[in-house]
Amino acid sequence: MTSQFPQFFDTRAFGRVLDSAFNDVVAAYGLTLELIFLPVLKALLAMEQLLLWLPWWAVLIGFSAFAWLASRSAKIMATVALLIFLIGVIGVWEQAMATVALMLVSTLMAVFLGLPIGVLMSRSNRVQGIALPVLDIMQTMPIFVYLIPFVMLFGPGKIPALLATIVFAIPPVIRLTNLGIRQVDVEIVEASRAFGASPMQVLTTVQAPLALPAILAGINQTTMMALSMVVIASMIGAGGLGYQVLQGIQRLEISRGLFAGLGIVFLAIIFDRIAQAYGKRMQKTLKLGA
């Protein structure tokens, strides 16, 4: 005998209601939402076109210069240059640039949205109490679940891919902004207030600079999560390296999947090295006074 869990309420009926309600939302607001996110799409496409329009060596120099500015280390700059070069060598340049564009735009937007949310959370225990479990759920929910509502709203394409990536990648930057600000020495914050600083002045002169290493660590994690999302996002039309991996699997072409996979790994190393080095350098500057 198999014992069955008793049915307390009709989940299927509930599911039907939920589905149809969401369908109604899609029918009513789908178009409007698409219009709202049109500028985002345009930014994404412009970024992609810019990266592809630039000659490969200009991109290489650009990345290397960025690496130098962030790390002040010749070794890291050389590593970044070499990896960019290798991405071209293995023949995935175009796809890699599409992926970089998606990553940069989604990371920027995640940071842009995540920072103020993190600041709000740090100011109120109640907001933190609500936000933390939500962030926990966001981070444990399988990535695919995010795709469904966004695809329903926008249809397959770059916008749902971008939005799903933002939702997936935003928790670390929120979390670590909140944590970073909360960890700032209370006596220093008190000193700032004692000299008549407004809440905004406390934030800009004390909390933000002292929380910067933590915030940068959050941005780093957000970047990595955005990158890990590209394969999945490609299933709904984001294109890029992920799409190549997907095709490799579908057509059983090991080489295609392998090269695209390598491209993703190289990008991951590039962004990780740059962000880590910058974080370390910031920490050292702050240590001077600890």
Binding site: I188, A194, P209, L210, L286, L288, A290
Partner: peptide
């Protein structure tokens, strides 16, 4: 204005 026991200077 105020002076603090652990100085509370801005390290950066």
């Amino acid at each position: 204005s105020m002076v603090f026991q652990k100085f509370a200077l801005l390290p950066h």
